[in-house]
Simulated assay, not measured.
Amino acid sequence: MEIKNQKGEDYPPKSLYLVMCGLLRHLREHGVHDMNFLDKNNPAFAEFYSVLDSKMKNLLDQGLGTDTKQADPISGDDENKLWESGVFGLKDSKTLQLTVFFYACKLFGLRGRDEHRGLQCDQFEIGEDSEGRFIRFIGRGSKTYHGGLGQMSINNKDIKHYCTPGPRCMATHFETYINAVGNDGDFYKRPLPAMPGNSIRYGHQPVGVNTLTKFMKEISQRGSLKGVYSNHSGKRTCATSMYEAGIDEQDIMDRTGHRSVTAVRKYKRLNDKIRKKVSNVLDPNSDVSLSMSKRNEQSDDDKEINLKNSPCHKKQKVRNALSEITTKSGVVNFSGCTFNF
């Protein structure tokens, strides 16, 4: 009832619950396994559960937790904008590093800081086969894959991405970057100033964790993108792009590394384009609604004309004529006739 954040304000309902989960995890890590105060069926903590439940409902009624901010995916238009404005490309060391960072997220479903901070050059392989040039990524430990006896039945992430030839060929960008950082050790190394004849240079020191955390924010600022962007936007872009293209959920999970359909569906949230499409269907002033209204206002005369010209109507006229002939003469014999309907 008394818990507050550093500003002395109430936490949102979900945050309050997550604080309780953190306390429970702390107890279990220290050997206390018989104090599950989130078990509503445990009479020892029934009052606690009831108070927490009431508090969360009350906070929701106050409007807390209704405006949840999530990292936005990079749309296709914004991605094109980043290329055209020079945020992505081979211009210099920083530009190339931001490019490979974003596409390591999008192409291979890597998480923001967690999977990038330990990334090594030898996890990437540039090759070519009958299908074309490709980048192969071999994953290691991650949030969803730790290895060991408990995950013997789970395969490590091993993705081969085939690249489209052209000025934005990712195989070329990744190969240029890996050669520049030395083909060994940490994947992200500090960019160095350009020198005559060599505009892409990197030092031996790895990029700091705090700098790596801000990469996506830096990309969005350089490109003047509007939205909420964090390093998690890259993985969300990966899942959202495949979702919009109608890719099967199992194939999405192979790229993102999720182990359940429920987990991957959290990334397939509606983007602004889909929301706009839904809005156009529902809004009374939209082009879609107005065109539907005009179709509904078609006059009865037009409908009658359309009915008379329809194939079904013509067939029925022939049937009526044949029926009338049969009624008058009793029997009708046809020989060498062709009927086209």
Score class of each variant (00 low, 15 high):
K91V: 12
G109E: 01
S291H: 08
C238S: 13
R113L: 15
K91D: 09
L282W: 05
N340F: 11
A180I: 02
M20W: 11
H30C: 14
H161I: 03
D72M: 10
F134H: 08
L307Y: 15
Q62M: 15
D61P: 00
N271H: 12
K235T: 02
T68V: 13
S54G: 11
N271V: 13
F88E: 00
Q62Y: 09
G208K: 04
S153E: 14
N179W: 08
V207C: 06
G208Q: 03
M20C: 15
D122A: 03
V19F: 11
Q120M: 15
P206I: 05
S15Y: 00
C169N: 09
S323R: 12
T262L: 09
F174Q: 00
G148F: 05
K14T: 10
Q316D: 07
S50K: 15
G127T: 07
T211S: 15
E84H: 05
C337T: 15
G63S: 02
L212I: 06
G86M: 04
S241L: 09
L18K: 08
P165D: 03
L119M: 13
G127A: 10
S224R: 14
N80M: 12
S54Y: 09
N41H: 14
I219E: 01
G86K: 00
M253N: 02
L23T: 08
I325L: 12
L38K: 09
F341P: 07
G147T: 06
A245G: 01
N36F: 05
R319D: 14
S85Q: 09
R259D: 04
K14N: 13
M242G: 02
V207D: 01
I305M: 13
P311W: 03
S310A: 11
L60M: 07
E128Q: 13
Y243R: 10
L18R: 08
Q316L: 10
G147I: 01
F134I: 01
M20Y: 11
V181K: 03
S85H: 09
R190P: 00
L119R: 04
R190S: 10
E2H: 14
L282E: 07
V51P: 00
V32N: 04
K217H: 08
L24I: 10
K55Q: 14
R136E: 06
L59Q: 01
I126Y: 03
P73F: 10
R275K: 14
Q120E: 15
D184Y: 13
I325T: 06
S230N: 01
I135H: 01
K57A: 14
L60G: 06
L290V: 13
K226Y: 05
T172S: 12
A245I: 02
L38W: 08
L212H: 08
G132L: 01
G150I: 07
R111D: 05
S54F: 09
T99S: 09
K226I: 11
R236Y: 04
G8R: 03
T68H: 14
S233E: 00
K40Q: 15
S142Y: 01
C312G: 07
L24C: 12
T66H: 09
R319E: 11
N280K: 10
